[in-house]
Structure formats: C-alpha cells, structure tokens
Design a protein around this nucleic acid. Structure first.
Length: 436
RNA sequence: GGGGAGAUUCCAGAGCGGUUAAACGGGGCAGACUGUAAAUCUGUUGGCUAAGCCUUCGGAGGUUCGAAUCCUCCUCUCCCCA
C-alpha cells in the first residue's frame, strides 16, 4: 500500500516490459525532478474502450503508480478529423450529446485502472479537447497556432509523406493535413494549463506528438517530451484485439466477461510472454518465474491463465473471473454432461451469459422436434438444415454436451432445469434454447 | 474525348453450347491429433419435403431442344492515350 514511497523509475519500468519504442532525450531527467505530468489521447468513437486502448491506458497506469500524474484527453475534437496516421478513413462527426455520453462511459471504465480520486496530488485527470477547440475560431487558430510551424515541417512527417507520395496516391484533404496541428495544440494547451510536459502513445503517434513538442518550444520556449510504445502485434501477423466476432470490448454488454477471459486464455505462447509484461502489473520477478515455468511445461499455459486472470479481475471483477473459470471448466473440462445436469439455473445462466439464446413454446417441445430442425430453425446454430445434416454426419453436433445422431427427436426430456436446452456446434460454439 | 480489358458461387481465379451447383487455391466450419495452442491430416463449404427437385455465374432481352458459355442493349470497374 505504500507504493509511492518506493517510487519506481517509470522509464525503467516500461523498458523491461518492452513498452518503449522511442523516447525524446530528457524524459528521464524530467521525471527525476519530481512528479511529472503526462497525457495520452483516446478517441471517444464508442461508449466503451476496447483492448486496443489498453496499452496507452497501462502506460498511464504505470505512470501513476510511479507517482506521476496522468491525464486522459478524450479526442472529441480530433476524433472528428481523422488521423492520417494509419489507414483510418474519414471520421463521422459525433454530436455533442454522444460525445459526452461516450466520455462518461469511458471514464467509468478508466476508473478500474486509474485513480481519479481528487485528494491525491497525482490523481488522474480527464479532459476533452472538444472543450477547448469548439470555440476556437479558424482565424485565431491559423494565427496563433498555424503561424508557428512551417508547411515544410509538417510535410516531413511520415504520415503526411506517405499520403502525398505513396503508391496508394489517395491524396489527403486539408482537414487531415491539419490534424497534427490540432493534436499539437492539445499538447500546448495541456502544457500551459496543467504543466503537462510529456505525451505518450503508440509508435504511430510519434509524428503527431513531436509536432506538439515543437509547437511548445517555438511558442513558449519550453521543453516537452514524447514517449511511444511499440504497436502490439500478434506472432501470426493478425491484428491484435480482433477476433472473428469483432473487437474485444471492456464493456460487459459488448463482450461478456466470459468471452473476455477466453480471449486472453487463447493467446499464443509467443504472444503471452509479451502481453503479460504489457497488460498486467505483475512485477519483473514474478513474470520471469512464470515465463520460465511456462517454457518448461507450455501445456499448462501458466502465462495465458495468469494473463486472463489479471485482466479479467482488473477490468471486471473477481466474481466475474471466478464464474468465467467455472464456465470454462464446464465447457471444456471433463465432467461435461453430468455436471451440466446438476447446475443450478442461476449458475447455468451466468455461465452461458452472452451465448445466443432462442425461445420455443412448451407445446412445441412436447410435440417433439427432429434435431436437425431444432438445431437450425429453432436454435439458429446453422443457417440451413443441409448444414446441420452435414455437421451431424461429421459428429459435430451435441445437445446438452452429448453427441447426437440425425434421428433424435428433441422433447421435454432434454430440458435442463426444466427450461433450457444447450446446443453445441463443434467444440466452441454454443446456443441455448429456452422454453418461453 | 479516343482506345483496350473485364464483371463467375465468402475471396482469388478456371470455365469445348449440353455429362457444370460450376476446376484449383485461399478462407470458413467440422473431425482426428493436442494444451480450449501451433503445425499436420481428413471431410465439408447454394437451398429443399434430398437417389429427386429448385435457385445461382453484373442487369434486361434474344438465338437455341438446351447458355456461365453465342448475339444485342444497359450498368459498373480497371488500364492506356489525349
């Protein structure tokens, strides 16, 4: 509980975790002076963070743990423009109401990571650049901000160069070209109002961040710094944080805690070694021990389990974590069919929370329904009966965890808790039918 | 504005006028193996009241006993020249 007295060196901390891609000279010295202030930007494009945001958030987390003051800047203004770094397409404007709603939801989520408690001197702070940009007139902006940087300087940025010369040769609108100035101004604003002298972000943000430090230098003569982390990759080349079903969100309504837990649990060995350093707060010694053990007995998947545990507890809760583990054991463990029968209704529901659910009338069930029809038409596990037929032939369909044949008739005797029937396609796809 | 190429089932890409629900590959899904992994191997991949039937090859017409394959028009895409 007295972490602050044993203040860790922030840069050293990020270094061993492999979270530093690049930094401007002077960062270390700046942070040695005492409590520093740093910010990262987050686009409020949705009312929830997804795990792609987690790296920046963890940087802030470590920053705060090391005794410094983190600021989150919601990109209410910048989010409207679209960052030319990367392939982002033209953004839609969000109306102010949505913006505020998203900001509030995200702040709620950030509370699991950062301490916003105002009694602490290094309490985290949340701001929105929409607030200081919305009334900034175009004329003022080009006089006060645009004047200080040359187009030559701005054009030298990779993000711009790529768009102007690249094979893609899509060109770039003036709006997008201006993006770095707007983001740069954010930094200046924070520098002047909160004495914030460090901006962090993914390595793709380097160019934008340095525009900010340059602006600060030219306009105020002060010095500010940049620190970026490597982009998170997957060993197989896929995009991190995406699954077939889409983004992994922190919002339990968008991604159930069970799915969240499963995502981390399914990390590949290679990635797990990287991720555990980036996404958990476990200390170096613990991680090194875990990694060593994991290499000896990789099938135990110690790293994946720790990763999933740490993250699920941090983002959701210990209870959610426990039920995710329990659910996983029932779904993938041994005591399948029997355990399933013994589950209480509430347990059953919490395990299968988020699993697609369809309803059926009791009368319909009493009459009896052929499995194929049941699995495709009722449970919607298949798009057609032909597909269901094939799957059954391949031994890929289970009802209540038991493989079934084509001729089975589903009736009330299959009900669990007198109310549910579990349909399973292959190993990992579950569907539930409930008596209405 | 002139000239050329093309549009095929999730993608990519074949396709003598009949034997083509449409090759090969990728992806997806499933099975085996395993660590709920990777790799590998196997099966499958339009629908149905299923040894049969129905709907598909950019759109609309036409030729033909019969068309994804031939003709006409339309729409869209790409390339080259000005």
């Amino acid at each position: 509980m007295h972490k602050r007295t044993l203040m860790k060196d922030f840069v050293e901390e990020l270094k061993w975790r492999g979270m530093i891609h690049d930094q401007m000279p002077g960062v270390v010295d700046y942070l040695k002076e005492g409590m520093g202030t740093a910010y990262v930007g987050i686009d409020p494009t949705a009312d929830s963070l997804h795990i792609g945001h987690l790296v920046s958030v963890m940087m802030l987390k470590h920053f705060q743990v090391c005794g410094h003051k983190p600021i989150v800047v919601m990109g209410g203004a910048t989010g409207m423009i679209g960052d030319p770094s990367g392939k982002s397409e033209e953004r839609n404007l969000l109306d102010e109401e949505t913006l505020r709603h998203n900001q509030e939801s995200i702040k709620e989520q950030l509370k699991s990571f950062l301490d916003f408690d105002s009694s602490e001197t290094n309490a985290a702070l949340m701001t929105n650049n929409y607030d200081w940009m919305k009334d900034f007139s175009f004329l003022s902006f080009i006089r006060d901000v645009g004047k200080h940087l040359t187009v030559n300087y701005m054009m030298a940025k990779d993000s711009v160069k790529k768009r102007l010369s690249g094979e893609a040769n899509e060109g770039m609108s003036f709006t997008e070209f201006t993006y770095q100035l707007v983001q740069g101004y954010d930094f200046l604003h924070l520098y002047q109002n909160y004495n914030c002298r460090l901006q962090m972000g993914g390595s793709d943000q380097w160019g934008n961040i340095t525009t900010g430090t340059e602006l600060i230098r030219r306009k105020t003569g002060g010095s500010a710094f940049a620190l970026t982390c490597p982009l998170i990759t997957k060993a197989d080349g896929g995009k991190f944080g995406k699954t077939e079903t889409g983004n992994i969100w922190l919002d339990p309504a968008k991604t159930s805690p069970y799915a969240f837990y499963q995502f981390w649990l399914n990390t590949s060995d290679e990635d797990a070694e990287k991720y555990i350093k980036i996404f958990t707060l476990l200390d170096q010694e613990t991680i090194e021990k875990l990694t060593a053990r994991h290499r000896e007995e990789p099938h135990m998947r110690l790293l994946q389990k720790s990763l999933a545990e740490e993250l699920t507890i941090m983002v959701h809760s210990e209870e959610e974590y426990n039920s995710a583990v329990e659910a996983s054991q029932i779904l993938f463990g041994k005591g399948t069919a029997d355990t399933l029968q013994k589950l209480s209704e509430s347990m059953f529901l919490s395990i299968f929370e988020g699993v697609p659910l369809e309803e059926i009338s009791r009368a319909q069930l009493e009459a009896g329904i052929p499995v194929l029809e049941f699995a495709s038409d009722i449970a919607k596990a298949f798009t057609s009966r032909g597909e269901a037929r094939r799957m059954v032939k391949d031994n890929g369909l289970s009802i209540n965890k038991e493989k079934v044949g084509e001729d089975l008739i589903i009736g009330t005797q299959h009900l669990l808790n007198n109310r549910y029937i579990l349909v399973q396609k292959g190993k990992k796809n579950f569907y539930i039918v409930r008596v209405a």
